[in-house]
Design a protein around this nucleic acid. Sequence first.
RNA 1: CGGAGUGUAGUGUAACGGUAGCACGAGACGUUUGGGUCGUUUUAGUCCGAGUUCAAAUCUCGGCACUCCGACCA
Length: 420
Amino acid sequence: MKLSQLFTKTLKEAPADEEAVNAKLLIRGGFVFKNSAGVYSFLPLGWRVLTKIANIIREEMNAIGGQELLMSTLVEKKYMEPTGRWNLDVSYKAIPQIDLDSYIQNSKFKIQDSFVLGWSHEEVLTAIATKYINSYKDLPFSAYQIQTKFRHEPRAKSGLLRGREFMMKDLYSFHTTQEDLDNFYKKAAEAYHKIFERCGLKAVYTKAAGGVFTDKFTHEFQVIADVGEDTIYVCDKCEYAENKEITKLKDGDNCSECGSGKIEAKKSIEVGNIFDQGTKYSEALGLEFADDNGNKKPVIMGAYGIGLGRVMATAVEVYNDEKGIIWPENIAPFRINLIVLDGKNKEAEEIYKELGADNVLYDDREDKTPGEKFADADLIGCPIRLVVSNKTLEKENVELKKRNKKEMKLIKIKEVFKEL
RNA sequence: CGGAGUGUAGUGUAACGGUAGCACGAGACGUUUGGGUCGUUUUAGUCCGAGUUCAAAUCUCGGCACUCCGACCA
């Protein structure tokens, strides 16, 4: 991508009323546009990051057998009412625009028969499954989607960390036995660890409460960071952790799991969670299977969520300096930021062509000074910066600097492709 | 939803109740080219609605929005 063509621009200063680092840097860099509190549009750079996160998640979900699909966003009352989740405060209702007179005259229109904008899709997928799942032979299976969720947050905050509208991956698994669910649950947890690791994040596996999703304990993936709104109690040795909301652990306790570690309280961001939902949804919506004796039994379910925007914002919170973002390799909008100084030259064009528009953000702007280009490169935060200028070209060199390192080195243009 | 704070140009900031100014950005011309270069010039603003006053960005009331703390967080 040529920076001269990118329709967004960087801002020298962050909006005065933003306090969260992720909001400041993502807005300044032109990754996102804040439409309202907790409601963001993803601009080309931000969308690239989000897409990369989505693809990592996809690969790992596919690897454990998850089948990708896309469910409806408008969810009718008939789905949510049986589970008691139709009239929860989190709901945004979608009410048709009809004039009041016809509304009163025409009793067929009932506001309560409208839709909720989907904020979680257990009911929808369970209802779909009733159509296709009859026998134990149809199980287990798991399916997921990556979709925008709508949740009414009484207080949206911290940039992308708590929004009213956000992209989420939600996977649901369906099983005949608790053992089978437990096995899948472990596989999903491993997949989650891989996902966060690939995104450059270290997530602590944390025991927590299930809220409205389940009465059982759940597990959260928590990234330790001061902006986090959660508090977890973690063992400094074995990393056993429990969320403050359920724990009896205290700061300074000895770890009961490994026996030798010390428990510490840490602020953290919940980037993902997994739930054992038992038969709550299958029973409410009549999802049953026939076992090998022909007896009908409710399907046992699990749910597994990751907030994509939250992963993105968390990476920014964890990896930044006074100049800008330092993206982890795998989720950077581009791997390389190529800067050309002293006017365009054929060497830079060749490097850009060779490495590819999908890998390189090519700062070919002719009306910008070197200082501005460097400042933008630091702000946008691609892992590798290449500079081609008269100075480097004298000896057929390119300068290479990593965003997370101070040193820079000169390498021969011909060898750039090997190096990268 | 309770509490606190803030709303001035695209962004960041000034202005005692008395001419809305500065910087950045954007446009033009020139200049400069390894860390947001310099100069000239143009552009654009008091969140909305009432009230007090000769006069309101400024005071009062109402609304809306945003930020932070708390409650909530599926």
